[in-house]
Nucleic acid binder design. Structure first.
Length: 938
RNA sequence: AGGCGCGUAGCUCAGUUGGUUAGAGCGCUACCUUGACACGGUAGAGGUCAGGAGUUCGAGUCUCCUCGUGCCUACCA
């Protein structure tokens, strides 16, 4: 006997229970085939499809936001769907150590205690971060459990885990050996607050209203001057030249002359002298056409400096304060220095003009501090360089992998974005001046100044043998380690069974915001390293199998209901856990799925979520109805064989489908079609379509029609036909159970609860998530029956509408007359009980003559009239008919115009012409009837 | 400065290769305490598909332009 469900659906009462159950029972773990005997692990070699996916690792510092929830809902739907289809489905979770973010978090904590990391020292600080992580680092994964994410928790990783750290070291050393990692002094984006270099991607650009300062530099010979233009006058302290375009007539004669650099006097020495040089970079159109050159603080100037062999004096320290001992500006912050320098220039009469100027400035993505381009020694990955041992550059492989279709993007437009970026990629600065992260495995020698890169901590310099070596203090960019995850999570550099089985992963689901940060880097690193790993059968790996994933699904941004980007400063952040608390996880999941149309941002709406909570409630109550029928059956002595439930989806020899009632044949057909539609939609990542098909089927067909008609069949009275009742109950249970399975990937909690209740402890699996996902072939379909049923539904709807028009009281049954072709008349006659119940009909009779008038309605398939005396509302009826006539006239004239067009008849496909002819004839008939009805009103 | 999207019912969005009278959910209106469900049922109202031009027998769908809007990329001092 199925359990009795509480009256109202209460998600809080069931969701936590199942979330814990799934984790506790380890239902979604996929054991490694490592060590398993070949015959056991490969009982059906190659037959079981695999579905492998990595969770984009959230930051350890993170809290779950709507973006995560969308991302994880989509991944979970897909994983559950694949799992239920019988695929070996592995979804690997983990967290990212998030270098800068985590370090900031712990520094803030220290600051609250009045301490700094410098006071603590490096190793104590790192220890402290580990403690922090142990305390707070699991928060986001705990929240994830609440979503029902069906990940393999036994494989949970952290990017700083020992084995992953070994892999990161290995990757670094190999790239270095291949000549693809180098160290050098270049201009990098420097964050003066974080005090570390950051990559180009970590700089966000902002348009700002600034000033363009025009400053006069006098010639050293005392005769004349040149005026330069700059947005950053404070950097003039580091000027080493002024550049003009060689083709610029105005300045051609000045090239080679020396200038006196104002304000550069220090320590009693006079102002420095700098040359005027010719360089194509100088744009005659911009400013004054003369540009000052500050190689240590501007990337373009750095390039000019290189071209002309100029020195690169650094004039600011790591915190963007002027660092020129002896200079009056020494120690000033860059902005204070600007104010002072501008006023001093003005006082000296060197400030020619200050103009408004729109400029875009780079800010640190993490802390929004204005980035300072800074010359410093950093480590880089040479992405466009051919490795020493031969082969393609990383970027070339990554471009080819996508171009050749080994990686497919959905939506496809992101392929272009990816290609555009990859084709213009620069070397990647991977060193960070942080303490939290993977420390670079390089040791600098105090004796010979050389650097030793090694897997194991060396005791002596590899170049001179000196023991005076010290490890590089920099750590690696967090994205360097996360870029390796698709293979390191499976044990690389070891050649494990997991790596052989699960690499490449099938799919990556992520947001476009980390397309370059992460997706592109995974492709580069994956292709690069995995090309060197042989296939499981020992053969050489090709690019198509070296890619980290075969498909990338990029989802949209979740915005608030007003389409605003959620942000803490705006205060419009929606907390998924709070929303879940109010509506239930299933409802929120379904909302996100139903709004997840590729390429379109999601304006998350609570109203919509309310609607899907109502849907969950509908599901819940339909279950209560079904269970109630089982209860009644039991009391009537009709047994239900739970082991045989799904067999009722197909006709057997004992019960041919042709003998089944119309609604049974119809609902099985609809279920089959819905299964086909949902499978197809999920295959195309159309979560919205899949959700909509399910919603429409469950509510609009199963609940609104099938359950209502079932009430008619489930007669447990003494006189009832027990066999027919039993059959009806079996079909009801079968269809309902299959519908739960169809819903399960979308609403795992409520379906799990009801499914177990339905089987009352005798469920055929430990979870509905391990049951089979409905396939179209699982149930018999009968197209003719479905069409007949649909016409019957139309008949019922027309009768209901007529009843309203005629003012038949809700409770009162009325007789109807039907005029229809014999075939459909027979269907109506055979199923008059359905019409009687669904449309409150007292009796159905048939007429050979067409029906029209105010109490009749016509469709192309039938006419129907309700026999009722009451006066109709003549004006209202006239209005309705007039509208209808206008619609038909418009439609008919359109059709006739087209049918009169010879070009149309000649060029349009036959089925279209035929369809239009049929439609025109039908419309004409309906128009005549409507006109007759209007005339009948008088 | 380049590149990519978007603009369809009051709101949020579908609308696959151009083909018959453009759909859904929510909201709205009227009626209904029918023994699963008022988080419900039934019936309805609501759209010149941003605007303009073009291609075509036929355009929400393809092309161009305009307007509005969002995003990404870029070293112009």
């Amino acid at each position: 006997m199925p359990q009795e469900l509480p009256k109202a659906y209460d998600p809080a009462a069931i969701e936590e229970k199942w979330a814990e159950y799934w984790v506790r029972e380890r239902l979604f773990d996929v054991p490694s085939s490592e060590g398993a005997s070949a015959s056991a692990s490969q009982a059906q070699p190659g037959e079981q499809a695999r579905f492998t996916m990595l969770l984009p690792p959230p930051n350890v510092t993170g809290r779950l936001h709507m973006g995560h929830m969308l991302n994880q809902t989509e991944m979970d739907i897909l994983t559950r769907w694949h799992r239920m289809r019988g695929d070996r489905s592995l979804w690997v979770p983990g967290t990212d150590h998030a270098g800068i973010a985590t370090q900031m978090m712990v520094e803030r904590q220290l600051a609250a205690e009045g301490a700094t990391r410098q006071e603590l020292g490096r190793s104590a600080f790192v220890e402290r971060v580990w403690q922090w992580r142990a305390h707070y680092g699991g928060a986001i994964l705990d929240q994830m459990k609440r979503l029902g994410a069906s990940v393999d928790w036994s494989r949970e990783y952290f990017t700083m885990d020992e084995d992953l750290s070994v892999a990161v070291k290995e990757a670094f050393v190999r790239l270095h050996e291949q000549g693809l990692i180098y160290r050098g002094a270049y201009i990098v984006n420097w964050c003066p607050r974080c005090q570390t270099a950051i990559s180009d991607l970590e700089v966000v650009h902002e348009e700002q209203q600034g000033k363009l300062y025009e400053i006069r530099y006098a010639f050293a010979d005392g005769f004349g001057s040149i005026t330069i233009a700059t947005t950053r006058p404070e950097t003039m302290l580091g000027d080493v030249a002024v550049a003009v375009n060689p083709s610029d007539e105005r300045y051609r004669d000045f090239i080679g002359k020396m200038l006196v650099l104002p304000l550069s006097a220090a320590n009693g020495k006079p102002n420095r002298e700098i040359p005027i040089i010719a360089d194509e970079w100088a744009n005659p159109e911009f400013g004054t056409g003369a540009v000052k050159v500050t190689p240590a603080h501007d990337p373009n100037d750095f390039a000019i400096g290189k071209r002309h062999g100029l020195p690169s004096p650094i004039i600011m320290d790591e915190t963007a304060h002027i660092a020129l001992p002896g200079s009056p500006y020494h120690g000033l912050d860059r902005y204070e220095a600007r104010v002072r320098i501008v006023s001093d220039l003005e006082a000296a009469g060197a400030l020619v003009a200050v103009k408004d100027h729109q400029l875009s400035i780079g800010k640190c993505d993490r802390c929004k501090t204005t980035v300072e381009p800074r010359l410093s020694t950093q480590w880089f990955v040479a992405v466009n360089k051919t490795p020493k041992g031969g082969g393609n550059s990383m970027a070339a492989n990554a471009i080819e992998a996508v171009k050749d279709g080994h990686i497919r993007f959905t939506p496809d437009q992101y392929r272009k974005t990816y290609e555009g970026w990859m084709n213009n990629i620069y070397d990647w600065c991977i060193s960070r001046q942080l303490w939290w992260g993977h420390r670079i495995p390089a040791w600098h020698c105090a004796a010979c100044k050389e650097t030793t890169v090694a897997r194991e901590t060396p005791t002596a310099c590899a170049h001179c043998g000196s023991a005076a070596i010290e490890q590089e203090t920099d750590v690696l960019d967090t994205w360097f380690s996360s870029g390796l995850l698709p293979f390191t999570v499976f044990g690389w550099p070891q050649r494990t069974a997991d790596l052989a089985e699960f690499y490449p992963t099938q799919l990556l689901v992520t947001g476009f915001d980390i397309l370059f940060f992460w997706v592109a880097r995974m492709v580069m690193l994956g292709c690069h390293f995995m090309l060197d790993e042989p296939m499981a059968d020992g053969s050489r790996r090709q690019l198509k199998d070296a890619v980290p994933f075969r498909e990338v699904y990029i989802h949209a941004l979740v915005r608030d209901a007003d389409r605003q980007k959620m942000s803490k400063t705006k205060g419009n952040v929606i907390d998924p856990i709070e929303i879940i608390g109010r509506f239930g996880t299933d409802a929120v999941r379904f909302t996100l799925a139903s709004m997840a149309s590729p390429g379109t941002d999601i304006a998350f709406s609570e109203a919509r979520t309310e609607g899907y909570r109502a849907f969950a409630n509908k599901i819940w109550n339909s279950a209560r109805f079904v269970f109630m029928q089982v209860e009644r059956a039991k009391e009537a002595g009709i047994a239900v064989d739970y082991a045989q439930i799904s067999s009722a989806l197909r006709s057997g020899a004992a019960a041919p489908l042709a003998d089944a009632p119309l609604e049974t044949r119809w609902i099985l057909t609809r279920l089959s079609n819905t299964a086909a539609n949902v499978n197809a939609a999920l295959g195309d990542y159309r979560f919205d379509e899949a959700a909509s098909h399910i919603y429409q089927f469950f509510w609009g067909e199963l609940c609104d029609w099938y359950l209502e008609i079932a009430k008619l069949r489930l007669d447990f009275g003494d006189e009832a036909d027990k066999a027919a009742t039993g059959a009806a109950l079996r079909t009801l249970l079968a269809v309902f159970e299959a519908s739960l399975r169809l819903l399960s990937p979308f609403m795992p909690f409520i379906t799990e609860e009801i499914w177990h209740a339905l089987y009352d402890g005798a469920a055929p699996a430990r979870s509905i998530a391990l049951a089979r996902f409905p396939q179209p072939a699982d149930m018999d379909a009968d197209g003719d029956a479905a069409r007949n049923m649909q016409t019957l539904q139309t008949l019922i709807v027309e009768i209901r509408a007529l009843r309203k028009e005629l003012g038949v009281p809700e409770k009162e049954a009325a007789p109807v007359v039907v005029h229809a072709p014999a075939a459909f008349a027979a269907v109506v006659a055979a199923n008059s009980g359905i019409a009687e119940r669904m449309a409150r009909v007292s009796a159905v009779s048939f007429s050979d003559a067409a029906l029209s008038g105010t109490s009749a309605r016509s469709t192309p398939q039938f006419d129907v009239a309700v026999t009722y005396e009451k006066q109709v509302d003549v004006p209202a009826e006239r209005e309705r008919l007039s509208k209808e006539i206008a619609k038909y006239e418009k439609g008919l004239s359109n059709s006739e115009r087209q049918l009169g067009n010879e070009a149309f008849l000649a060029k349009a496909p036959a089925n279209v012409v035929e369809g239009l002819k049929k439609q025109a004839a039908e419309t004409k008939a309906l128009l005549e009837k409507a006109r007759a009805a209007l005339d009948g009103l008088g």
